[in-house]
C-alpha cells in the first residue's frame, strides 16, 4: 500500500471510528426513527390511506425514508465531526500532516457517506422483513443513491467548515434540510397537492431526489428520471468544487 493510500485510509478510518464509538446515537437512533416512521405512517396511517398511484402507501413512502436516512446521516455526521474537531483543535493533527486538500475533503465526505450508507442499508434490510419492497430499476437506484449520499456528505462538510458553533449546524439541519426533505414528498405524492403547493414543490431539489429513489425501487416517478439524475450529478459536482476550493484556501480551517 502506498503512503498516500495509508494516509487516506487512516483519515477515513478516523471518521468511521468516531461514529462507531457512539453508535447508539449515530446508527441506532436514526434506525429506530426510520422504523417508527414506517410503523406510524405505514401501518397506522397506511391502512386508512390504502394506495397511492396503485402502490401500497407503506411501500410508497419507504424509498423516501431510505433516502432520508442516508441524506440526514451523511449530513449530520460530517457537519458535527468537522465542527467538533475544530472546537477541540484536534483537526490540526490532520491539517499539519502531508494530506492534500483533496484527500482531506474526500476522507471527511466519505465518513458521512459511510454512516449514511450503513443506516440506509440497515433500514432497507429491516423494511424488507416488514414489507414487500421491490427493486425495479437497480441501474438508476444505485447511482441515484450514491449521488444523494455524496451530495449530502458534501453539504455536511460545507456546513461543518463554515460553522462556528453548534447552533449553526442546528440552524441548517432544522430550518433548511428537514423542511426540504419533509416537503419534498417523502410521505405523499406531490401530484395530489393543491396549488400553489404543487408548483412550489417543483422548486424543491429534494423532490427530484426522492422521485429518483422511488423510481429505482418502485418504477414510479413524477419527474423526468434522466433530467433529475443529470441535475443531481451537476449539483453534486458543483458542491464538490466549492468545497475543494474552500479546503485549498484553508477557509475557516487554517488561520
Amino acid at each position: 500500500m502506498s503512503t498516500a493510500q495509508i494516509r487516506f485510509l487512516t483519515l477515513w478510518r478516523r471518521e468511521v471510528n468516531r461514529f462507531m464509538k457512539i453508535k447508539k446515537q449515530t446508527i441506532g437512533a436514526p434506525l429506530l426513527e426510520t422504523f417508527l416512521y414506517i410503523s406510524v405512517f405505514g401501518a397506522a396511517l397506511g391502512s386508512r390511506i390504502g394506495e397511492l398511484h396503485g402502490i401500497d402507501y407503506v411501500v410508497f413512502v419507504t424509498p423516501g425514508l431510505i433516502m432520508m436516512a442516508w441524506s440526514t446521516n451523511a449530513f449530520a455526521n460530517n457537519s458535527s465531526s468537522i465542527l467538533q474537531q475544530k472546537f477541540q483543535g484536534a483537526i490540526q493533527d490532520q491539517l499539519s500532516s502531508p494530506a492534500s486538500p483533496l484527500e482531506l475533503l474526500l476522507a471527511f465526505a466519505l465518513g458521512g457517506f459511510t454512516r449514511g450508507f450503513l443506516v440506509a442499508a440497515l433500514t432497507f434490510i429491516a423494511a424488507s422483513f416488514l414489507i414487500d419492497l421491490p427493486v425495479d430499476h437497480i441501474l438508476v437506484l444505485i447511482p441515484a443513491l450514491f449521488l444523494v449520499g455524496f451530495f449530502f456528505s458534501q453539504l455536511g462538510v460545507l456546513v461543518g467548515v463554515r460553522a462556528e458553533q453548534f447552533d449553526d449546524i442546528a440552524l441548517a439541519q432544522t430550518f433548511v434540510l428537514q423542511p426540504l426533505i419533509f416537503l419534498g414528498g417523502v410521505f405523499y405524492s406531490a401530484s395530489l397537492l393543491p396549488e400553489p403547493f404543487q408548483t412550489l414543490t417543483y422548486f424543491n431539489p429534494v423532490y427530484y431526489m426522492i422521485n429518483l429513489i422511488r423510481y429505482g425501487f418502485l418504477g414510479y416517478s413524477e419527474a423526468s428520471v434522466a433530467l433529475s439524475l443529470l441535475a443531481l450529478a451537476a449539483a453534486t459536482v458543483a458542491l464538490f468544487a466549492v468545497n475543494l476550493r474552500l479546503f485549498s484556501r484553508g477557509y475557516r480551517l487554517r488561520a
Binding site: 503512503t3 495509508i6 494516509r7 485510509l9 487512516t10 483519515l11 478510518r13 493533527d93 490532520q94
Partner: peptide, 14 residues
Amino acid sequence: EETLDYHAGYFGMP
C-alpha cells in the same frame, strides 16, 4: 493508542 496510530497513518507509516 489510537491517537498515536492515526497520527502515524496520516504520515503514511505502514
